[in-house]
């Protein structure tokens, strides 16, 4: 029953998001259409009237059609997996997404994995050993990264390592002199271009994972079954992996699932700073060039990913932890 209720709430949220993006675009200031229509008229050298028609078709919006029909058409497109069209790039949003997703997923999954593993291990050590050299380091890192917005970290790293030291390139996902494919120069180029964004995300995430793990490990250490395991004279290693690790990892795993979902949104600002052509960069472009079709499509995609991830995290949590299976 719980599962059905959760799925129900997720579906409702998704419907609300669909409605929201629809309403936003529906209430779009009138001159936006004119701007887009002028742009199309110039690009394709057609009359203004024709361009206006095209602009309306692109954003799934025609003021002469009843509201409900408009909404069903819009939602129908989404259900068929059609995210709409981009005005600026003159392409279906689906095609842009297909180009952008690999970059965002590459950078974010690598950094998420690294910061999760290092952070969780550090948190575990901090809880088990108490008062190690790690504590002050992790506390400092986490309050500093809490204070510095990610885009500022990105800017600083770029100025230091890309502009001044020239260790890494400043923009793009790979060097235009390499041929995309499975060859060494291309792979090295991709690594070099991805290194700084990856490092930014690792820095931003590490402290959080460490503190989360430390907190839950400390509370698990106070449980009776740990004391019982110790009293039975079990090996330290066994207590750490089987008793402490498994139980303390629960909140981290759920948070990881949620972060994986949030990942698809990318970070608009970090990707824009590095001109890294992932979903976030395209979203930034869409927003600054008032490309409502692209904005709408990408936002819907992001929201769907986040909602699905939250639902999954809920389900994972209730599967892993039998205590919360029965009630809220």
């Amino acid at each position: 029953m719980q599962i059905i209720k959760r799925i129900g709430i997720a579906v409702m949220t998704l419907l609300l998001v669909t409605g929201l993006t629809f309403v936003l675009v529906h209430n779009m200031p009138g001159d936006v259409f004119e701007v887009i229509a002028y742009r199309i008229a110039q690009q394709q050298s057609i009359t203004y009237e024709e361009a206006l028609q095209q602009a309306r078709a692109i954003i799934h919006y025609d003021p002469n059609v009843p509201l409900l029909t408009q909404f069903t058409e819009y939602a129908g497109g989404l259900l068929r997996g059609d995210l709409g069209k981009s005005v600026i790039f003159q392409q279906p949003v689906n095609k842009i997404v297909a180009e952008a997703v690999p970059w965002t997923v590459f950078v974010l999954s690598v950094s998420l994995l690294i910061s999760f593993v290092i952070g969780t291990l550090a948190g575990m050590v901090m809880a088990w050993k108490r008062k190690t050299f790690l504590d002050p380091i992790v506390t400092t890192i986490s309050s500093v990264t809490d204070a510095i917005p990610d885009y500022v970290t990105a800017l600083l790293l770029m100025v230091i390592f890309a502009v001044n030291l020239r260790w890494f390139p400043t923009k793009g996902a790979y060097s235009s002199s390499t041929i995309p494919g499975f060859n060494l120069p291309f792979i090295i180029s991709v690594m070099k271009h991805g290194a700084l964004p990856i490092f930014v995300y690792i820095l931003q995430g590490f402290g959080g994972w460490a503190l989360l793990m430390k907190g839950s490990a400390v509370s698990v250490l106070g449980e009776d079954y740990i004391m019982a395991a110790r009293a039975r004279g079990l090996k330290e290693r066994r207590i750490i992996t089987n008793y402490l690790g498994r139980n303390a990892l629960l909140p981290s795993v759920t948070a990881l699932a949620m972060s994986l979902g949030g990942m698809l949104g990318g970070s608009v600002l970090v990707e824009t700073v590095y001109a890294y052509p992932g979903l976030g960069w395209f979203f930034g472009q869409a927003v600054s060039m008032r490309d409502y079709g692209l904005m709408q499509g990408l936002f819907f995609l992001t929201a769907t990913a986040v909602i699905t991830a939250n639902l999954l995290a809920d389900l994972i949590y209730s599967r892993l932890d039998p205590r919360i299976r029965t009630g809220e």
Binding site: G265, F299, T302, I307
Partner: peptide
């Protein structure tokens, strides 16, 4: 649930 920063941008 709905990511706030992209929404603010929109």
């Amino acid at each position: 649930t709905v990511p706030s920063f992209p929404l603010m941008l929109i």
